[in-house]
Structures are given as C-alpha cells and as structure tokens.
Amino acid sequence: MSGGVEWGLHCCVVLSGAGEPVPAAKLAELHDVSPSYLAKQLQLLSRAGLVRSTLGQSGGYVLTRPASEITVLDVVEAIDGAVPAFRCTEVRQRGPLATPVEECTTPCPIARVMDSADNAWRQSLRAVTVADLVSEVGRTTPAETLSLARAFLRS
C-alpha cells in the first residue's frame, strides 16, 4: 500500500470536519507534506468522486458525501486502485516438474489463501468509514490539538 493512502485518509478526516473548502496548500502545510505530492493524492480522490474542488477566493477541497458514506476501502482504491495485493503467476506450471495446464483444474492453493486474505482485508477496510476515523481521532487526540487544527484551517 502506498504512502498516498495515509495522506488521503488524513485529508478526508480533516475535510469531514472543516465546514468549508480547504485549499490543497493548506492541507499540505498542515500535514507537512509536499504540496505537489498531496495534490496528486487529492486528484486521485477527486477522480474517484470522493472529494471535489471548488474555485474562487474561498476555493479548496470538500468531501462529496458524508464521511459516514466513505469507507477506508474507497480511499485505498482511489489512491492505489482495486488491484488485488497478490497475483498468481501459476508457479506450479513452471520448471522441470511443471504441472501441465490441463491438469490445473482448480486454483492454486497458495492463490486461494492469498485471495481469501485479500478479501478479508478489503472487507475489514470496507467496514470502517471516514466518520469512524473522525470519531476515533476525536477520542484519542487532545481537545487543544483539535482546536488548534480547526483554527489553523481557518487562518
């Protein structure tokens, strides 16, 4: 999983409570990340329909729907794509003791295990929303820090 997923999730959490559009440069400054790098992640989130940009003096990024309707998996797939983490290359059909293609009538046991793990991982990420993350951040982050973050975004 790329680092862009982490930045994308942090941005979604911030945007969920911002109340107004947040410029990409402000998000980059808040998170101490390169503005051009963060802009790429925001573009991916925008292409996936999770955020949209607004133009003008008070322009910036906003979520396109409530945080309770955006899952962690939505963000992961927006940034990294929906490609499974494991791709079977049919190793059992290679080498001096290769199993002939016509005898490979069931999926490779390794591929089955990896596919099962990938499905479980995706299901777990699908079960957590950005709103859930916001709640957890609110519960685990000092109130003063949250207040300072809100003030920073308004400045």
Rank of each mutant, 00 (worst) to 15 (best):
Y61F: 10
T54Y: 07
T64G: 10
P109S: 06
R122L: 06
G81T: 04
R65F: 06
N119K: 14
P109I: 01
L73S: 04
T54G: 15
W121Y: 13
A98M: 06
C88R: 04
P84I: 05
T99F: 05
Q57Y: 08
R92F: 03
Q123Y: 02
M114W: 11
V72K: 01
E103L: 13
G95L: 12
R122V: 01
T89P: 03
M114C: 12
V101G: 14
G95K: 01
I70E: 05
R122C: 06
S58H: 10
D74Y: 02
C104Y: 04
T89I: 10
T106F: 09
A117H: 07
A120H: 06
P66M: 11
G95W: 10
I70G: 00
D80L: 10
P66V: 05
A78L: 08
Y61N: 01
P84C: 07
R112L: 13
R65V: 08
Q123H: 08
R122P: 07
Q93H: 04
A111F: 01
C108I: 08
T105Q: 11
G59E: 12
S68I: 07
L63H: 00
Q123C: 13
A67G: 01
W121R: 15
A67V: 01
T105K: 15
A98L: 03
C104N: 03
G56I: 06
I70N: 06
L63E: 10
I79H: 11
Q57E: 15
L73G: 00
E90D: 10
Q123M: 15
L63F: 03
I70T: 03
R65M: 09
A111G: 09
T89K: 09
V91F: 08
S53R: 14
V75H: 00
L63M: 02
V51T: 12
W121N: 05
D80Y: 03
Y61A: 07
I70L: 03
P109L: 02
L97S: 06
T89Q: 07
V83Q: 09
R122Y: 07
E69Y: 04
Q123D: 12
S116K: 03
V51I: 04
E103G: 08
L73R: 02
T105G: 11
E102I: 10
E102Y: 13
C104E: 12
P100I: 11
Q93C: 05
S58T: 15
A67N: 01
D74C: 07
M114D: 00
E77K: 00
V83E: 13
V72N: 04
S58F: 14
A67H: 00
W121Q: 04
M114H: 09
A85Y: 03
V101K: 14
T64R: 13
A82E: 13
T64Y: 03
G56L: 13
V83Y: 04
S116V: 04
S58I: 07
T99H: 05
R52A: 14
V83H: 10
E69T: 05
W121S: 01
F86E: 05
S68N: 11
D118Y: 12
